[in-house]
């Protein structure tokens, strides 16, 4: 009798289609007035010696059906959830709710990369003003009035002695005078100005980063190593660097660093003017006069300095052929980066 009931109950359980039917099944077989309970109640009709065995058998049956019920319930819940999810499908190709970040200026982004690379080598940022004295921009950098090297920079003049800095180099004197007698490792970023007609290649306002290291044992090979490290981290790790002699009034010896052209890998193309090399920066060992003007005894101290424009590397890196995009502030340009 119990076997019959179990068989019937299991058949009915397997046939339950949904949660409602399952609940009905539970009521029917295992509820307070269910078949199993009824069966238990019928125990009184049995002879007393059979009662315990029967009671145990009924309870076993109840437990078995309860277990089967739970298994079936899990299956049905899963099925029902899947049905529900299927009907809740949406078009995932529709665009999302507009939100989110704006864009930092490409110059800012480039500066941050530069800061990070040099921070790794112990260089910290030092900022100096845009409006400078003739003395700091030229004189103390070993270019007294009428020095022919002044021709290298076309200058916006504010007065006899005041100008818009043509390069970040006056910051060298400022930081040396402020930090003496500490050793120095700084980079000096900032806006510079040159009296130049604005073209695809030239802007009257641009950013430069100057680097300055002063210490008791700083050497040309350190400078070359530092510039190589920068080029490889800013561009790609296997870039080659070429150092050539140059002239700047505030460094001696003076050099320029080139990197093999990232577009043609040194074979020669329009961007590198078919030389295979791109100019990375001008640099050199700090001229003794400049060290002296900064308060450092050139016989005891030595140092290196370098400087480069910020836009040019970004232009090379992103294939930008017109510098006017930078400060033209067309958002269709800025938001690409």
């Amino acid at each position: 009798m119990l076997d019959q009931l179990e068989q019937k109950a299991r058949q009915a359980l397997d046939a339950t289609p949904d949660s409602d039917a399952l609940a009905a099944w539970h009521r029917h077989y295992l509820g307070k007035k269910g078949a199993a309970t009824q069966m238990l109640r019928s125990v009184s009709a049995l002879p007393p010696e059979e009662r315990p065995a029967f009671g145990q058998a009924v309870n076993r049956l109840k437990r078995a059906l309860e277990t089967a019920f739970e298994a079936r319930q899990a299956v049905i819940q899963r099925q029902e959830m899947e049905q529900q999810l299927a009907s809740g499908a949406i078009d995932v190709t529709l665009s999302g709710r507009p939100t989110g970040p704006g864009h930092l200026h490409l110059t800012t982004q480039t500066l941050r990369q530069i800061y990070a690379i040099f921070a790794g080598m112990g260089f910290q940022v030092y900022e100096a003003p845009d409006v400078e004295t003739d003395e700091l921009n030229f004189g103390l950098l070993n270019m007294p009035p009428e020095h022919p090297a002044r021709d290298m920079w076309d200058t916006f003049w504010i007065g006899d002695q005041v100008l818009l800095r043509t390069h970040t180099s006056p910051g060298q004197i400022r930081v040396m005078r402020e930090r003496y007698p500490e050793p120095i490792r700084v980079i000096l970023p900032g806006k510079c100005y040159r009296y130049e007609q604005i073209t695809a290649r030239a802007e009257h306002q641009f950013y430069q980063v100057e680097g300055l290291a002063v210490g008791r044992g700083i050497q040309m090979t350190d400078l070359i190593g530092t510039l190589t490290e920068f080029a490889r981290r800013f561009y790609e790790p296997d870039r080659r660097i070429r150092i050539r002699g140059s002239y700047f009034p505030f460094t001696e010896p003076s050099i320029e660093a080139d990197m093999d052209c990232i577009l043609c890998n040194g074979k020669g193309c329009r961007v590198c003017k078919y030389s295979g090399w791109l100019e990375v920066c001008g640099a050199g060992m700090v001229h003794p006069v400049v060290l002296q003007n900064g308060g450092y005894d050139p016989e005891e101290w030595s140092g290196f300095a370098f400087g480069f424009g910020v836009e040019r590397p970004a232009m090379v890196k992103y294939g930008i052929d017109d510098i006017r995009y930078f400060y033209g502030n067309d958002l269709r340009f800025s938001t690409q980066f």
């Binding site: 290291a213 090979t221 070359i224 530092t226 150092i243 010896p253």
Partner: peptide, 30 residues
């Protein structure tokens, strides 16, 4: 100046023959 002579030596010796080193000098206060 002596350093002007250093430059003459460096550029004729050839910058392509210079090894690269990383700064070993004392790190300034950060």
């Amino acid at each position: 100046r002596p350093v002007d002579l250093v430059e003459e030596v460096a550029r004729i010796w050839g910058y392509d023959r210079f090894p690269t080193t990383l700064l070993r000098d004392e790190l300034p206060p950060q």
